[in-house]
Write a protein that binds this DNA or RNA. Sequence first.
DNA 1: TATTGTTATACTCTATAACTATA
DNA 2: TATAGTTATAGAGTATAACAATA
Lengths: 161, 161
Amino acid sequence: MTKGGDEKQGEDTASKAATLFPPMNDVIGYKLRRAQLAVFQDFLASFAKLKVRPAEFSVLVLIAQQPGLKQTEIADQLGIKRANFVALMDSIEKRGLAERRKSDSDKRSHSLHLTPRGAAFCRKMFAVWRDHEDRMIARLGGDEERARLITMLDRLAEPGG
Amino acid sequence: MTKGGDEKQGEDTASKAATLFPPMNDVIGYKLRRAQLAVFQDFLASFAKLKVRPAEFSVLVLIAQQPGLKQTEIADQLGIKRANFVALMDSIEKRGLAERRKSDSDKRSHSLHLTPRGAAFCRKMFAVWRDHEDRMIARLGGDEERARLITMLDRLAEPGG
DNA sequence: TATTGTTATACTCTATAACTATA
DNA sequence: TATAGTTATAGAGTATAACAATA
C-alpha cells in the first residue's frame, strides 16, 4: 500500500532492520493516533462555523443527556481533570449554552443544565455531527464496519471489559 | 441520597434527549480518542524505564529502517512539522542515539543515521514494544482482530485509499 | 478531615512566522 | 526565488499543588 521505499531498501540494511524493528504500520498505537487525528480534522472543519471543539461537544452532549450532574461527575465521565474543566465550563457558560446552578443539598457543588439557547444550539450541533459521522462511516464501509470498530476500540479502552 | 432519581431519568427528558443527541458511545472520534489514550498510557508505562516517548520511538524506527533520509522527509512521514522536529532530533542526538550528517550533494540538508549505540538501544526498544503490542493484541482478542482494526484505521486515516 | 470548585503553574504537543544558508 | 533547518512564540491540552467554602 503506502509503504513507499519499503520493498527496495539496501539488502543488508533491510534484512537487518526487518529483524530489529517493526514497520510503523504494525504499531497499533501509531495507527490509532493517525486515525484519530484524521477524524478530528474532519470534526474540526465540520464545527468551525459553530466554533465547537471536541471537548465542548462532549460536555454539551453529557449535560443534555444527564442534566443536573455536578462538574466533577461530568469531568470524570470524560476523563477531564476537574481543574481543567473550570475554563471549559466558563467558556460554555459565557456563551449562554449551559449554566451552573447552586445545589441546595450540597452548597459546594454546581449542578449543570442547558439553557434554552443551549438546547437549540445542541439541535444544530446534532445535524452537523450527523453529517460528520456519516462521512466517517462511509470511509469505514458501512454501519456493520462501524459497529465492529467501536467494539474493538472498547476492548482497547476498557481492558477489564 | 442526594442523587434522587439518577438512574431513572424523567421519561420526557430522557426520550427527548435521545432523539436530539447521540450517546457518546456512538461517536467514532470520541471512542478513537479514548482508545488511543489507553494504548498510549500502556506505551508510556512500558517505556518509562527507557525514557522513550511515542514520537521519539517513531523517529528512531524510521531512521533505523530508512537511514540517510533528511529531516523533512522523516518529519513528513510522521506528520510532524519540521519546526517541531528540531527539538525532538536535538534530544535524540544529545542522547547519542542518532546523528545528523551534512550531505555533500545538498549542503542545506542533514541526513539522519543511527549511531551504534542507537542501534543497540533500538534492539532494547523492540523487545519492550513487542510486549506492549502483545498486550494490545490480547485486549483485542488476537491477531485476526488486530489486522481488521488496522484495516479500518487506515480507511479513516487515508480516505482516498 | 474530606470534598467541590477554583486559581496558579508547568510541561507537552502543535501551529505559524521569520531568519540563515544554501540551492 | 525557493528550500532545509532553525529560532521564537503562541495556543491548545493536560497534570499537580494549594486555597476557600462547605461537608
